[in-house]
Design a protein around this nucleic acid. Structure first.
Lengths: 195, 195, 195, 195
DNA sequence: GATGAATGAGTGTTCATTCAT
DNA sequence: GATGAATGAACACTCATTCAT
C-alpha cells in the first residue's frame, strides 16, 4: 500500500477508535492518548490528522452519522415504509447490550456536548439526531399518516428514552420490552387515525 | 445561629450549589471551585464537609432524590392515581425551559456517571431513576392496570427521551408536544386493556 | 511570619525571579519551571499567584518599572537637573557588565514583545520606556533647554543603542565609551543653543 | 532550468523567506512550517537544504549581511565619504515603517540570539553589526577624523537606539527625528575636532 | 532529490486534594 | 472549625527533526 493509502488508513483507524472510545468513556474522560493507543498510533502523530481534540469528536460524530446512513440505506431496500421503521426498531434492540453498557452513542455525546458553553461543537450531535428524525418522518409520511414529524419525534424519543434507561439501570431487557412496545405501536398505526 | 447550625447551613448551601451547577455544566466540566463560589464557601472549606468531589456528586444526587420525593409527596395528595401521573407529566412540561437547556438533571448525571469505570458512584443515578419508576408503577398498580412495571418504564422512558431530544434540539416545544401525547395516553388507559 | 506574609513573600520571590530570568534568557526561552526553580517555588504553585505566563511577564515589567522609579527617585535628590541626567548615565555605565551579557532589561523585553501579534502585552514594555523618556524630558525642561522631548529621545536612544551594541559585541567597553560621550554631550548643552 | 538550478532556487527562496519571517516574527515564534509556507516549499523538503533551524537562522543572517554589502556597495559609488555616511542614514530613515513595526533586522536577531546559552550561533549577529561598524569607521577614517572607531560606534549605536525606540513606541517618526539629528551631526564633524 | 508522514520530548495550564496555622 | 496556600499528577497541544518511499 502506498503512502497515501496508509495515511488515510490511519485517519480511518483514528476516527473509528475515537467513535468507539468516546462512546464508551465519554468525551471528558477520554484522553488523546486513549484514542491514540486504541488506534495504535503514536500520540504525537494524532495531531497530523486532527488539529484538536474537538476535531476528533467531530470525526466521531461524522462516523456515527455514517453508521446511521448505512443503516437507513439498508432499510430503504425494504419496499414498505412500515417495515423500514420496524427494521429500525429491531436494529436498536439488536444493540441492546451496547446500549445497556454505554447508551446510544449519539444521544450520550449530545448530553455531554450540551453541557458546553463554548459553542461550535455543541449543536453537531443534535444534527445527527435531526437526520434520524428526518428519515423517520419521511417514512411516516410515505405511509400517509397525519403529523409525520410528531410521530417521528415520538419514535426517536422512545429510542433515546429506552437507551438511557437501559443504560442507567444496566438492563438490556429494557430495550427488548420497550422495543416490543414500539413495534406494536407501529403496527397499530393506520392512515386517518390519530396517535 | 450556633456553630452547628451555621455548619449545616454551609453544607446545605454546598449541596444546593452542587445540584444546580452539576446539572448545568456536567460533572467533568465543573470544578470544586465552581461549586464553592456558587455556594459562597471558601474552596479550602469544602473539604470539611465533603471529603471528595464524588461525595459532592452524591450529595447532588440525594438533593435531586429529595426534589423527587417532594414532588411525589405533593402529587400524593391527589386522590386519583391517574391525576397523580398526569400531575407528574405536567410538572415535567413545566420545566421545559430548563430541560431544553440542560436536560433532565438525573438523566444527564446518569449518562455521565455511566461513562465511569471506577464504580461506587456509577449506579447511584440509576437508583434515583428507579425510585421514580417505583412510584410510577405504584400508581399504575393502584389503577388496576396490568403490567404496571412495564407502564412505568414506558412513562419514564418517555420523559427521558423527550428531555434528551428537547436538550439536543434546544427546543422546549418538544416537551410540550410529547407531554401532551403522554397525557392523552394516560387518559386512554383502561383496566383490562393492553397498551 | 504569618500566612499572609509568607504568601506575598512568595509572590515577591516569583516576581524577582521572573524579572531576573526573563532578562537573562528572554521570554520564549524561559519556561515556567525555570522561574519556579529560581524562586524555589513548586511549579504547580506558581499558578496560585499568576494565572498565566504572560502575567509573570507583566510582573517582571512592573518590577523593572519599579527599579526605574527607585533610580529616578534617588537621582531626584540632586538639586541640579543636569546632575540628575549625568547620574542616570553613570548608573547605566555602572551596569555595563550586565548590559554586555544580557542587554537592557526593558529594551530586550520590548524587542521580544514586539514580535508578538496577539496584543495585550506587546505595548507594555514601551510604556516603561516612555516613563523613562518622560522623566528625562522633565529634566531637560527644568534646564530650560529647547525641545526637551527631542533631547530625551536622543539620550534614551543613546542608551538603548549602546546597550544593544555592548550586548551584540559582548563588550562592556562600549558602555564606557558611549557613556563618556553622553556625559560630555550633557555638559555641552546650554539654553538657547541647538543640539 | 535544470535540477541544479531549481534546487538552488529553492534554497534562495528559503533563505529569503527566512530573512523576512524571522525579522517579522522573531526566531522563537517562527516555526519551520512558517518559513516553508512562505517559501512555498514542502516542510519535509527544507531539511534537504538546511539541516537544522539554526542553519536557516544563519542563512537569514547571511542574507542580511548581503543586503548590507549591497547597500555599502551602492554608497561606495559616491566619491565623498561624508555623503556615503549620510546616504547610510538616509537609507535607515527610508525604512522607518519597517523599523517601527519590526525593528532593525540584525539588531533584533542579535537580541534574541544573545539570550541563548548554547553558543555557536549567538555571536553571528554581532559579526554583521561589526561589519557595519568596520565600513562606517573606514568612512570616518577617509574623512581624516580622529577616533574613527569611536565615531562609528556612535553612529551605529544611534541607529540601533532609534530603531529600538521606534519599534517599542511604534512610531516611525522617531526614525525621522533622530535621523535628522545624525545628518546634522555628520555635517558638523570637522577634522581635528572632537565629537 | 523530494516529500508526506512519523515521532517524542517539552510546555503551559488545570485541578482535585492536602496542609499548616 | 476555617481557610489561604501548596502540591503534583495529569492533559492538550506544539514543533524540530527524522524516516520511508
Amino acid at each position: 500500500m502506498d503512502r497515501r493509502g496508509r495515511a488515510s488508513q490511519k485517519r480511518r483507524r483514528l476516527t473509528a477508535a475515537a467513535a468507539r472510545v468516546l462512546h464508551e468513556q465519554g468525551i471528558e474522560r477520554t484522553t488523546l492518548a486513549d484514542i491514540a493507543r486504541e488506534a495504535d498510533v503514536p500520540v504525537g502523530n494524532v495531531y497530523y490528522y486532527f488539529k484538536t481534540k474537538d476535531e476528533l469528536v467531530r470525526a466521531a460524530l461524522a462516523e456515527h452519522r455514517t453508521h446511521l446512513d448505512e443503516l437507513t440505506g439498508r432499510l430503504g431496500e425494504s419496499p414498505d415504509p412500515r417495515d423500514r421503521l420496524k427494521g429500525l426498531v429491531e436494529a436498536w434492540v439488536a444493540q441492546r447490550e451496547s446500549a445497556a453498557r454505554h447508551g446510544c452513542p449519539t444521544g450520550t455525546l449530545a448530553v455531554e456536548l450540551d453541557k458546553r458553553t463554548d459553542g461550535t461543537l455543541d449543536a453537531e450531535a443534535g444534527e445527527v439526531i435531526r437526520r434520524l428524525l428526518d428519515w423517520t418522518a419521511a417514512q411516516f409520511r410515505a405511509l400517509g399518516l397525519p403529523d409525520p414529524d410528531g410521530l417521528a419525534l415520538t419514535l426517536v424519543s422512545g429510542y433515546q428514552g429506552m437507551s438511557l434507561l437501559a443504560n442507567a439501570l444496566r438492563d438490556p431487557g429494557v430495550m427488548s420490552r420497550e422495543g416490543e412496545r414500539l413495534l406494536r405501536w407501529l403496527d397499530s398505526l393506520q392512515p386517518d387515525e390519530d396517535v
